[in-house]
Design a protein around this nucleic acid. Sequence first.
DNA 1: GTCTTTTTGTTATTTTTTTCACAATATTTA
DNA 2: TAAATATTGTGAAAAAAATAACAAAAAGAC
Lengths: 212, 212
Amino acid sequence: MALNRKCIIRISRYKNALNRLKALGFVKVFSGNLADAAGVSSSQVRKDFSLFGITGNRRGGYKVDELIKRIRDILGKNELQKVIIVGAGNIGKALLHYKGFESGGIKVMAAFDIDPSKYSHELEIPVLPLEDLRGFVQDHEVKIGILAVTEVAAHHVSEIMISAGIKGILNFAPIQLRAADDVVINNINLEVELENLIYFVNAQAKTDGVFE
Amino acid sequence: MALNRKCIIRISRYKNALNRLKALGFVKVFSGNLADAAGVSSSQVRKDFSLFGITGNRRGGYKVDELIKRIRDILGKNELQKVIIVGAGNIGKALLHYKGFESGGIKVMAAFDIDPSKYSHELEIPVLPLEDLRGFVQDHEVKIGILAVTEVAAHHVSEIMISAGIKGILNFAPIQLRAADDVVINNINLEVELENLIYFVNAQAKTDGVFE
DNA sequence: GTCTTTTTGTTATTTTTTTCACAATATTTA
DNA sequence: TAAATATTGTGAAAAAAATAACAAAAAGAC
Ligand SMILES: NC(=O)c1ccc[n+]([C@@H]2O[C@H](COP(=O)([O-])OP(=O)(O)OC[C@H]3O[C@@H](n4cnc5c(N)ncnc54)[C@H](O)[C@@H]3O)[C@@H](O)[C@H]2O)c1
Ligand SMILES: NC(=O)c1ccc[n+]([C@@H]2O[C@H](COP(=O)([O-])OP(=O)(O)OC[C@H]3O[C@@H](n4cnc5c(N)ncnc54)[C@H](O)[C@@H]3O)[C@@H](O)[C@H]2O)c1
């Protein structure tokens, strides 16, 4: 199996599960514990680990602290990850005010907008004019950007971000952004997610069947 | 191939792509056009369609209007889909103020919270006390809920929602919610999504390779 | 110190998903 | 009207992913 998106998402989930298990007092875990906590199979856990060369002890399982350290390292959680937000509207502001990223080693450096009424230096995280984006990204060597502008502006703004040096975009606009091979794009389409939910709820209401 | 989550997500994307193509003046499309617009292969498009018994004309492709109608029907877009939001904080409010759902046939009926300072009848969409949730869900026969409360409250609140009759939950809290077979849960973990992006950007910086 | 038990790490198997390939058949051309 | 051509619809093949199986090794029992 390759080292694909799904696999890394599971690795993130293992990290979260491990933190919970650690809080419960676990010092070592077996692949089965972790599998239960993360909602996958134990062989999936071992398979994923073997892909990253993560090893435990036969019969002894894995030491929680070492495992967390190893996974944090894989996910880049040991360095501060700098992020910018573009578009300080509903979603942009929600992310801007969220306190949870910082504790996970993700630092929102600034937000950018074209609407002057959104600009602010009072906030802990400043909202700056879009024109300042290029300089800011280059000065601070930011590689990751969250795109939360209106649908019509999204494609254009993504090009500005990429030309400034952004290499990864988390896109909330309801268009399927695509870009050159050296830029990673993760599209989050909340309406599609809701449609999905609605489909399966309605289908279940009809058939009482179980899906996926 | 079964009719799984990924397949329905593609169906949603086809719908969005078709709307764009229609706006560009397309009256009929071939599987290849749609594939390009949605970023998949043409045989994938035809396979998905065959799963739903969607047929076109050999050599003639698919009529855009008919196709949109058929897909809207599959996704329940021809009836109004009622949704509630639980948790009127950062994310909850962002969703509450979003105008885009309505045009997609998704009607946010109300939001619920435990913090009285969040209550409001002034807004187009009211924010009500959590105690009112059960009655509201039952009166309005709401089946879909968006969960946007704090992490610690999420599991408990999900149980309240399910016991009130909610059958599908879009969960933003960073825990992997699970529930009985007759409830569909879609977990959106933005930190995990960012971690994923960060991983592939960092990996690419190291190897200059291309991923998935 | 040997035996038993448990759990990893990895290879084999199965299942799922995607792509390929092509007969069937509309549409267009002549 | 017949021939040429393009595109669907689907079964077969390939690829990818998940699960199962089990030998090897570590921990504990006695
Ligand atoms: N809010 C939601 O719940 C929600 C749900 C689903 C999808 N979305 C999508 O997320 C995106 C943001 O949604 P929102 O509700 O926050 O929208 P919004 O209109 O509240 O905010 C958009 C922000 O982008 C800014 N902007 C517009 N053009 C810009 C440009 N060229 N450069 C920089 N900034 C620019 C605007 O000034 C505004 O502040 C939209 O594409 C929307 O479709 C939002
Ligand atoms: N805001 C973000 O950008 C962001 C990003 C990633 C994840 N999340 C997750 O999304 C969820 C919401 O985040 P947020 O930033 O909107 O948080 P928030 O603290 O702004 O809002 C949470 C809301 O839930 C309400 N609440 C708490 N307990 C409740 C209960 N038992 N019943 C009903 N309401 C209750 C609170 O009163 C508050 O209004 C959290 O779980 C958070 O971890 C948010």
